[in-house]
Amino acid sequence: MIWTTQQRSDFGQLKAIIKGEGQNIVLLHGVGLRAEAWNAQINAFSQSYKVIAPDMPGHGESNLDAITLDLSSYTKKITEAISEPAIVMGHSMGAMIALDLAIHHPDKVKAVVALNAIFQRDKNAVNAVQKRAKSLDGKTVADPTGPLTRWFSDQESDAATACKEWLINVNPAGYRNAYTVFATENGPSPENLRKLAMPALFITGQNEPNSTPTMSERMAALTPKGQVMIIKDAAHMMPMTHMDEVNQALLSFIEEEVK
């Protein structure tokens, strides 16, 4: 099955699925998940590229050591592990990290892709995400019902089953820390996006209620080499639920923009 657990290798201080040869592509997953969330992309991209999909600190097989409650702490773990300029792709909180990395360490990034990224949430959205963050104690497993409902609208699928398993097995402290950062951050600043010199793709789902199409459109418009793509009928977990459309979009971007 496509979400089967894969073997890990060292990637700096993190553990990662590493496959293929060639130009490096780094794939960063979202809160509560693990590297296997990218399996559809790993399988497709590793035919022509070297794909590195790390587990976020406190997720999968990566330890939570030396992580503080700020985005730069997560970015640092990736920055230290990248040995040559890479194409960096992130989903949800992974998109936050990818953009932060591209903005503050451009020498490490040839191109950046932000999937389902947030940008300037409104007051209601900020209150909702911060309320969820405050409900986490870092000791008990968070009820996965809320995220699964937001991501899959109660529709059963192999992707939903895999996400449920990851959410109930994630390190509670790792989940709380990552979600707290996710709730505290509100996306890159317009000033930083205007300084982003490398090719950048902002891609989200047509039916995404939180990382909305408007957010991606606004970020792309601010970025000198920004592009936007909206995946029809997709929502938050589109790398898993709409893998063919997402893979085609990402591969086309790489082939056209990264020389």
Score class of each variant (00 low, 15 high):
residue 121 R to L: 12
residue 173 A to K: 15
residue 60 G to T: 13
residue 169 N to A: 12
residue 72 S to Y: 08
residue 69 L to R: 11
residue 8 R to L: 11
residue 26 V to A: 02
residue 163 C to L: 11
residue 205 G to V: 00
residue 39 N to V: 03
residue 232 K to P: 01
residue 42 I to N: 02
residue 9 S to K: 14
residue 103 I to V: 14
residue 248 Q to P: 00
residue 144 P to A: 08
residue 197 A to E: 15
residue 21 E to R: 15
residue 256 E to K: 15
residue 184 T to G: 15
residue 27 L to A: 07
residue 156 E to T: 11
residue 100 D to K: 11
residue 106 P to A: 08
residue 216 S to C: 14
residue 77 K to T: 14
residue 165 E to Q: 13
residue 74 Y to M: 05
residue 197 A to Y: 08
residue 90 G to Y: 01
residue 173 A to C: 09
residue 15 K to W: 10
residue 155 Q to F: 12
residue 117 A to P: 00
residue 119 F to I: 01
residue 12 G to S: 10
residue 150 R to N: 12
residue 54 P to D: 04
residue 33 L to H: 05
residue 129 V to W: 06
residue 168 I to D: 13
residue 219 M to A: 04
residue 146 G to P: 00
residue 144 P to I: 09
residue 146 G to S: 11
residue 19 K to Q: 15
residue 59 H to S: 13
residue 92 S to D: 06
residue 166 W to A: 13
residue 204 T to L: 02
residue 194 R to G: 13
residue 88 V to L: 02
residue 108 K to Q: 14
residue 81 A to E: 10
residue 224 P to Y: 06
residue 32 G to H: 11
residue 173 A to D: 14
residue 1 M to F: 04
residue 64 L to P: 12
residue 103 I to H: 02
residue 1 M to C: 05
residue 202 F to G: 00
residue 78 I to F: 12
residue 256 E to W: 09
residue 3 W to E: 03
residue 127 N to T: 10
residue 52 I to F: 06
residue 145 T to F: 13
residue 159 A to V: 05
residue 150 R to P: 00
residue 115 L to Q: 09
residue 54 P to T: 03
residue 140 T to I: 04
residue 24 N to P: 01
residue 16 A to Y: 10
residue 112 V to T: 07
residue 197 A to F: 08
residue 236 H to D: 02
residue 143 D to H: 11
residue 77 K to E: 14
residue 182 F to E: 07
residue 38 W to N: 09
residue 168 I to L: 14
residue 233 D to V: 02
residue 139 K to G: 13
residue 205 G to W: 00
residue 212 T to H: 03
residue 150 R to F: 07
residue 143 D to A: 10
residue 199 P to W: 05
residue 184 T to M: 09
residue 197 A to D: 15
residue 179 Y to Q: 05
residue 89 M to I: 15
residue 52 I to Y: 03
residue 252 S to T: 13
residue 84 E to P: 08
residue 109 V to A: 02
residue 227 Q to A: 06
residue 115 L to Y: 01
